[in-house]
Amino acid sequence: MTGAPARPLSATAPALVSLAGVGKAFDNGVVALQGVDLAVAEGEFLALLGPSGCGKTTVLRLIAGLDEPSAGAIAGQALAAREGGLGYVFQDATLLPWANVADNVFLPLRLAGVARRDADERIAAMLRLVGIDGFAGALPHQLSGGMRMRVAIARALVTRPRLLLMDEPFAALDEITRFRLNDDLLRLKHETGCTVVFVTHSVYEAVYLSTRVAVMSARPGRILREIAVDLPARRDDALRRDPAYLALCAEASAALHAALAGSPA
């Protein structure tokens, strides 16, 4: 089948989650995914790159268990969102508008039955980690979009997940803010050691952040191409002008164009 990965999947690390022949058709007849094969290796930063509406979000929702596949199998889905399970960052920060920053970060622990006084230290540590200590008492509407996203990331990380799923989290932010959050996200990933699956439609963001880019086709989505990003683990703004980085961007961009070929713009 033509959708088979172009490169063998990383064989060194065990797969945390794997999708085999996964398809998803919705009740309204839309086929979002067809024959998706994808393995997420422990410790990697996987970018899911694809045109809008190609089912990238659906892949994340299936991994998270928010939707069930209509075909194929997912192993590792049992990673429920609990201690050491998975964290999910949505396109918008989706904070509780009536709760302050600390209470928003506390939410996953609160839902797990953790008492507030037992969580205070960890909440403070999370706020420091994402760089918003000092705003614990602020309400979401008092924060900028970038800071709200930082709160959402702190909330996703507060349960110390092994797997962090991120659905175009920086798409709505201005470029400078996005660059800063990109760098902070890389730092967070190294500090927490979690595995990240990051959905984006930006080629540059995908290559900058990830250790592997999976390019998806237009709907019905499947994995068209996988590109290993052999760039140093320590990345900073200088990388954005690095020829190796730009060559990978060109490769991913060509794959994305191939994904769009034959579909209306």
Partner: peptide, 18 residues
């Protein structure tokens, strides 16, 4: 209620009362 927040509660296995 925000559907994304609703998903978040589902993700964290919130009880009906929560």
């Amino acid at each position: 209620a925000d559907p994304a927040l609703s998903d978040l509660f589902r993700l964290y296995r919130a009880t009906p009362a929560q």
